[in-house]
């Protein structure tokens, strides 16, 4: 009994050192050496400022931008006043929850403001439902194409420029990984970054606002 307790304590110390510290530090070392950016959250840096992570959705409210999927936790945006983060999380609504129906109806209404033809059945469903993480960085290609008319309107675009936007979305569609895994998708932040840079490089005196 006493012998077992002594071995247990020694074993616990050894495992904390080996499985806790050594293992974690070794893996961190590999991450730092070979995958520096990915290990650090795949940040997107512009003019020395981190504007977000390639892997995390961020909030877009302005109709000029492609919008992310709805988030149950405000995309972990810091509160203006308290500066406190909202933890990640999901709505966890069951299938017959009244609040789910209410929120979906509200989203349909909000979307149909900019897009009068939109109804609950023709809006891409990923724009109506919150994601699991609240940080889903992707939307379906349909959801990206769907938003083009709103963006074109907000940016006062002609039909030629609108076609450019369609082309932009098309080049940003990622197919299933290695043809095997996952769904075709569009990374919203990357697409918006591209959109931003494109209009910074192609200033158009009339339409660029």
């Amino acid at each position: 009994m006493k012998k077992d307790i002594i071995i247990s304590i020694k074993y616990m110390i050894a495992s904390t050192i080996i499985l806790g510290f050594a293992y974690t530090i070794f893996i961190t070392f590999i991450a730092q050496t070979f995958f520096y950016s990915r290990g650090h959250g795949s940040p997107i840096v512009s003019n020395g400022v981190v504007i977000g992570s390639e892997l995390l959705a961020q909030e877009f409210k302005d109709p000029k931008w492609f919008w992310e999927r709805p988030s149950a936790t405000k995309y972990v945006t810091l509160d203006d006043k308290t500066n406190a983060p909202v933890p990640t999380g999901a709505s966890n609504y069951g299938a017959i929850n009244k609040d789910l129906k209410k929120e979906v109806d509200e989203r349909v209404l909000a979307i149909s403001k900019d897009n009068p033809a939109a109804t609950i059945t023709n809006i891409p469903p990923d724009l109506l439902f919150t994601s699991a993480s609240g940080l889903d960085p992707h939307i379906s290609p349909e959801a990206a194409y769907f938003q083009i008319s709103r963006i074109a309107q907000a940016r006062n675009m002609g039909s030629e420029e609108k076609n450019k936007l369609v082309e932009m979305v098309r080049t940003h569609v990622e197919p299933p990984q290695y043809y095997l895994f996952g769904m075709p998708r569009v990374n919203v932040l990357k697409l918006n970054m591209y959109l931003k840079q494109y209009y910074e490089q192609h200033p158009d005196p009339i339409n660029n606002k």
Partner: peptide
């Protein structure tokens, strides 16, 4: 992710703050 660095505060395209 795999790092010991502290969390990052990003300034989003629309100008709000996001905690990474």
């Amino acid at each position: 992710v795999q790092t010991f660095s502290p969390y990052i505060t990003a300034t989003t395209i629309e100008g709000s703050k996001q905690l990474i």
